[in-house]
Design a protein around this nucleic acid. Structure first.
Lengths: 131, 131
DNA sequence: TTAATTGCAAACGGTTTGCCACGTT
DNA sequence: AACGTGGCAAACCGTTTGCAATTAA
């Protein structure tokens, strides 16, 4: 995933991409694998993961994930928002007012009913932006 | 983690809880383990995980995580918000307007600089709330 | 005494990676 | 020819779990 990598075309990657664009679901790697296994008899899960990472690197698809790979825990159970450093992964509490009216926006403008949301802001923390 | 489980006290759990309350960082299980290993010589990581889950179950702490355990991917790289079903884990796109002014709120009211955020709403999807 | 908790080690499950053959340029 | 890609299987790593011994109620 180096910066100056030259990617070549591959049928598998193109199908993964078109498959992801053709659905409004938010597929998992395993689902993509089982779908494309029908077309590519010898497809392996490793290939799916490798290509997904390339596509994310190319910014053609996005990974829906909170940030770091392991769970983090918070002794503060009150709703509050977080600032997540895109470089070091540090999570900091935001001294911001929580906006319960966001729930109301969703409840009146969509068919969904919600009473809870999660809001994370991304950027560089002080020490990382100083570097 | 059944509903009518009666939890007994344990020194380890009480220290995990007080440790989580004493810091504004958002520790990982491994960090908690290495801190408390100093006090409990034979502490094991399994104990930390078990007690974390109990504390989450008791709603004394919160787990900072997006939802399901495996990554999901989206062919739509435009910023958009999601509705996540708390029961089945399904992720759906919200036909909502994105609110770039939320970034401005953070940038003017806190010391942080952000140009990107992620907003997830939680609730029950149509089929799960029908049940 | 009963049942929850612990430490230990093995198992789990999603993801990554090393290797070598194959495909693209 | 040079090098990215695929398939396969093993490795990785955070988390969970089975078990026997310990501890709280």
């Amino acid at each position: 995933m180096a910066d100056k990598q030259k990617y070549k075309r591959s049928k598998q990657r193109e199908r993964i991409y078109s498959l992801l664009c053709s659905t409004k679901d938010h597929p998992t790697a395993t689902w993509i694998y089982s779908e494309l296994k029908k077309e590519f008899n010898n497809l392996s899960l490793g290939t799916v993961y490798r290509n997904i990472n390339i596509l994310v690197d190319q910014k053609k698809i996005q990974r829906l994930q909170s940030g770091s790979s392991f769970d983090r825990f918070d002794g503060n159970v009150e709703t509050h928002y977080h600032f997540i450093c895109e470089k070091c992964g540090k999570i900091e509490d935001l001294p911001c007012v929580v906006l319960p009216e966001l729930n109301a926006v969703v409840n009146t403008n969509t068919g969904y009913h919600t009473e809870k949301h999660r809001l994370d802001f991304y950027g560089f923390c002080f020490s990382c932006s100083a570097q």
